[in-house]
Structures are given as structure tokens and as C-alpha cells.
């Protein structure tokens, strides 16, 4: 099976160093379970491909695209030429704009179906079909049987990536490719950038549209769990059990007692 993994320029969240984004590293691991993963990167530098070679990529192709230029046409042209059975990408980039739009734009351009947020992949018995497990959050899955070729994006709950192996990175080959002529500057909406300002997260159960005092009360936990924090010292065990079950049900993690409605 011919598998292409889209490799983007990731940034380490703290140091800002050029790294392979974790999702793409996970994509490589998933791909390695099905065949030989080939990397495709469009950008000015090839350092990130070298990194990807150390994490399980067999070969990398580097389309030289200047910074700030939309990589989608270059990627689409190359993918249209190589026609892989499977194109893998992370669900979002890491350290860039993080819009997660590239795989969708590619799928649209190549007119391929796209399955998002996959955590596991396997070949199905029927040739050309794949069994994909999509994350629905909290360990719930949707198992999708799908016929390729297609684009798949990877969810963070996929298996952890392979460890980086310097020797493999050293040995892997990177093929430089020239960008197809006629790629134009990407025109996104005009955005203004400034340092990130952390905003308070909404507190669950906080009154909406209440006064500032009420919101503060909710935010500082006075009305949240800490305020309702209850302490029972040396209760009767049965009393304690009743309290715990009632509390768990109130939170909603425990189903209410069995209802007789369903026989």
C-alpha cells in the first residue's frame, strides 16, 4: 500500500525549535502498520523531514516552497502525480496557524474523501478497503469501513509516536523536488497578531449574564465544587455510601438507579 504522510513544519510549544509535530509522528506510526510511509513536505527547509525520517519515515520528498506561500497546490500536484492509496495528516498543525485546513483543501482539490480524527487503522479483508477507528472523545470510537484512496487526519489519542532514532534519520533519503510553477501567494483573511493573552475559562455551572460578583464567585470556586465541598467525619458507612452515590449521580458520572421502564 502506498501511503503518503504530510509533514508540516512543527514548533516545539516551549522552545520553539523546529520539530516534527506529534500528530504527524503518530501518523507515521499508524502508517508503518500498513506499509511503507513516505513523507511529503512543502516548505523552505527540509529539517523537519530529517526529523520525520528518525521517527519511522522511510523516504521523504521535499517540495521547495518559499515561506508564506500556500503549500496546498504544490502538495496537490505531487499527490496527483504519485496517487498514493492513503494520505495521512495531523488534524491540526503545531506551531503555525493551526487551522487544520490543509487536509480539507487537499481532499477538495484531489476530490478524495476525508475521514477525520482517526486513532487506529487496519486493512480490511476486502481489498482496497480500510477499517478506521475514529475518536469520539473519552475513548469512544466510531469504526468506519471505507474504500480508498482517501485522506485521513490523525487524532491525538492515536498510539504514541515512535521514538526518534538518530541512525535512521541519518540513513533516510530526502528527495528534493521543485515546486510546480504557478503557485501563488496564499490569500487568507487579514489577521493582526499580538502576544497571546490567556482568558479565563468559563466555569461550568456559572450563572450566565450574572453580575460580576456572581461570576467572580463562580470563578473562585465559592459556588463551584469547593464551596459545596462537604466533609463527613466518621459517618455510618451506609450513610457515606448513600452520600457518595448521590454525589456521583449529581456530577453525572454514575447512571441513575436502574429504571424499571426497560424490561
Amino acid at each position: 500500500m502506498k501511503i503518503a504522510v504530510l509533514v508540516s513544519t512543527g514548533r516545539h510549544p516551549v522552545s520553539g525549535a523546529t520539530v516534527l509535530s506529534r500528530l504527524e509522528a503518530q501518523a507515521i506510526r499508524l502508517a508503518a502498520g500498513l506499509g511503507e510511509p513516505l513523507g511529503l513536505h512543502a516548505g523552505p527547509e527540509q529539517a523537519v523531514l530529517r526529523e520525520a525520517l528518525g521517527q519511522g519515515l522511510v523516504r521523504g520528498e521535499h517540495i521547495v516552497v518559499p515561506d508564506g506561500v500556500d503549500p496546498v497546490p504544490a502538495l496537490a500536484a505531487r499527490l496527483a502525480a504519485t496517487k498514493p492509496d492513503l494520505i495521512l495528516a495531523g488534524r491540526r498543525g503545531q506551531g503555525g496557524d493551526e487551522t487544520g485546513l490543509v487536509p480539507y483543501a487537499l481532499a477538495e482539490t484531489l476530490d478524495l474523501p476525508l475521514i477525520p480524527d482517526v486513532v487506529a487503522m487496519a486493512s480490511d479483508d476486502e481489498a482496497g478497503t480500510l477499517r478506521l477507528d475514529q475518536s469520539l472523545g473519552r475513548g469512544a470510537l466510531r469504526r468506519v469501513l471505507v474504500r480508498g484512496p482517501l485522506v485521513v487526519t490523525i487524532h491525538p489519542d492515536a498510539p504514541a509516536p515512535f521514538a526518534y532514532a538518530y541512525g535512521q534519520a541519518r540513513r533516510g533519503t530526502i528527495v528534493p523536488l521543485d515546486a510546480a510553477p504557478g503557485t501563488v501567494e496564499g490569500t487568507g483573511p487579514t489577521v493582526e497578531e499580538r502576544p497571546y493573552r490567556r482568558r479565563p475559562k468559563l466555569v461550568k455551572g456559572a450563572p450566565t449574564g450574572g453580575s460580576a460578583a456572581e461570576r467572580l464567585k463562580a470563578a473562585t470556586g465559592e459556588a463551584g465544587t469547593a464551596a459545596s465541598g462537604r466533609l463527613l467525619v466518621d459517618p455510618d458507612p451506609d450513610e457515606a455510601a448513600r452520600e457518595i452515590l448521590a454525589h456521583l449521580r449529581q456530577i453525572g458520572v454514575l447512571a441513575p438507579p436502574t429504571r424499571p421502564s426497560i424490561p
Binding site: 516545539h12 516551549v14 522552545s15 525549535a17 520539530v19 528518525g54 521517527q55 519511522g56 504514541a160 509516536p161 515512535f162 521514538a163 526518534y164 532514532a165 541512525g167 535512521q168
Partner: peptide, 19 residues
């Protein structure tokens, strides 16, 4: 050569390399 670090050591070593 094999990238066969123990599972839990991968994170720290990766961060050492990257950060």
C-alpha cells in the same frame, strides 16, 4: 539505530532533544 527506548523514556529524551 532502533529507536527502541523504553516507552516512558521517550518523552523526556524527546524533550531533551527539542527543548
Amino acid at each position: 539505530e532502533r529507536g527502541a527506548l523504553p516507552e516512558k523514556a521517550v518523552g523526556p529524551v524527546t524533550d531533551l532533544r527539542q527543548a
